[in-house]
Simulated scan of single mutants.
Amino acid sequence: MKELRVAIRISIVIVSVPIVTFCCLGIQFYSLWQPTLDPYILTLLSVLGCMAFIVVAGTQILYNVFTASNHLKVNSLTFVAMGVVNIIIVYCGLKFYPQYNMYIIVGTSSVLAILRQLCVVLPYVSRLLGVSCTTFYKETFLTLICCAVNTIIALAILKVCTISGWLSFTIDVVLVGVLAVLSECFLLLNAEERKKIKQLISRRK
Rank of each mutant, 00 (worst) to 15 (best):
V74K: 12
V74F: 08
S76V: 06
S76A: 15
S76K: 11
L77A: 12
L77Q: 14
V85K: 04
V85M: 08
V85C: 06
I87V: 14
I88H: 05
I89F: 05
I89Y: 03
V90I: 15
Y91C: 09
Y91T: 09
C92H: 13
C92W: 15
C92Q: 14
G93T: 03
L94R: 11
K95N: 05
F96K: 08
Y97D: 10
Q99F: 11
Q99N: 13
N101G: 07
N101W: 11
I105R: 04
V106H: 03
G107M: 01
V111T: 14
I114V: 13
L115Q: 02
L115H: 07
R116P: 00
Q117W: 05
Q117K: 09
L118S: 07
C119L: 15
C119D: 03
V120G: 01
V120D: 01
V120W: 02
V120Q: 03
P123S: 12
S126M: 11
R127E: 14
L128H: 06
L129V: 03
G130L: 08
V131A: 05
V131Y: 04
C133S: 13
C133W: 10
T135K: 10
F136E: 00
K138G: 09
E139W: 04
T140R: 01
F141K: 14
F141E: 09
F141P: 00
T143Q: 08
I145Y: 03
C146L: 00
C147W: 01
C147H: 02
A148M: 14
A148K: 07
V149Q: 03
V149I: 15
N150L: 04
T151Q: 02
I152A: 14
I153Y: 05
L155I: 04
L155G: 04
I157L: 11
L158M: 13
K159Y: 13
C161A: 12
T162L: 11
T162V: 15
I163Y: 00
S164F: 02
G165L: 06
W166R: 03
W166Y: 13
L167Q: 12
L167G: 10
F169Y: 13
F169L: 07
T170C: 14
I171V: 10
D172G: 05
D172I: 03
V173H: 02
V173M: 13
V174C: 11
L175M: 12
V176C: 06
V176A: 00
V176R: 00
V178Y: 05
V178G: 02
V178P: 01
L179D: 05
L179F: 12
A180R: 04
V181M: 03
L182C: 11
E184T: 07
F186G: 06
L187S: 04
N190W: 09
A191C: 06
A191I: 04
E192V: 03
E192S: 13
E192K: 10
R194S: 05
K195N: 12
K195R: 15
Q199W: 06
L200V: 02
I201W: 14
I201A: 15
